[in-house]
């Protein structure tokens, strides 16, 4: 495996991660979302491993395995359980229709590219060009949180943002210190449990996981 080939492979993985971020925006079924999220995690894990191999930073292998365990197996499993337990298989209602969301997404990608262009000029890491993709993944995750109504999609958007952050860390600096990564992983796990508990309560209170229901919680008038 040559260095440039690794870079190419990483670019391909970055492109696929970007695609999965868009797929998250486009997907209507909750289970589909969970699957795509797992795929995104897998791609992320692969990309981390590739970067780890190419850069010689071997702690990235651990990150890669951690990602694999957390984002490909554990979190999707928790979400899967949740979806089954709460019996939510309906289509997700979007606040903004899908094509418009896609257009907004493209605008955000271009915006990210525009933002990271100066960094691209300065950095000499082989992963520098994927920074734009990482930033775009964060933005798209946020866009997903903005445009979807269902609470589970909010979480998936949040987790997708985290994926983007992780990717940004690997592509900007070849990863965060191990301690930080472990901490973040633990945080995510706890967040997932807390979300699960919250969903359960929201579901029993409102008999729905539509977050628009929560508008009732605001002040009167």
């Amino acid at each position: 495996m040559t260095h440039t080939f690794a870079a190419q492979l990483n670019s391909l993985l970055a492109a696929l991660i970007l695609l999965s971020a868009f797929a998250l925006l486009a997907q209507r079924k909750i289970m589909g979302l969970v699957h795509i999220f797992a795929w995104q995690g897998l791609l992320l894990s692969l990309s981390t491993a590739v970067i780890g191999y190419a850069s010689g930073e071997h702690h990235l292998y651990i990150s890669s395995l951690l990602t694999l365990g957390m984002k490909v197996i554990l979190l999707p499993y928790i979400l899967y359980k949740l979806v089954h337990k709460l019996k939510i298989h309906r289509d997700i209602e979007a606040v903004v229709n899908v094509p418009t969301t896609m257009l907004l997404g493209i605008i955000l990608v271009v915006f990210s590219y525009h933002l990271t262009a100066p960094i691209r000029e300065l950095s000499n890491l082989m992963t520098r060009s994927t920074l734009a993709v990482a930033l775009a993944t964060i933005m798209l995750g946020m866009l997903m949180m903005v445009t979807r109504r269902h609470a589970v999609t909010q979480i998936l958007g949040f987790l997708a943002m985290e994926n983007g952050l992780f990717f940004a860390a690997t592509s900007a600096t070849y990863g965060m210190p191990m301690v930080v990564e472990l901490g973040v992983a633990l945080d995510l796990l706890i967040a997932a449990f807390i979300f699960g508990i919250f969903f359960f309560h929201i579901n029993t209170t409102f008999e729905s996981l539509d977050v628009e229901q929560m508008a009732k919680l605001k002040e009167t008038d």
Binding site: F111, L115, L143, M145, V146, V211, A215, K218, E219
Partner: peptide, 25 residues
């Protein structure tokens, strides 16, 4: 603006983020 809709709050964050990025740029 304070309408209790979660997405809009996230949108505020997103907009703020974009504006901050832009202002930095």
């Amino acid at each position: 603006m304070q309408n209790g809709i979660l997405q809009q709050y996230v949108l505020y964050i997103l907009i703020t983020l974009v504006v901050l990025f832009l202002s930095d740029y």
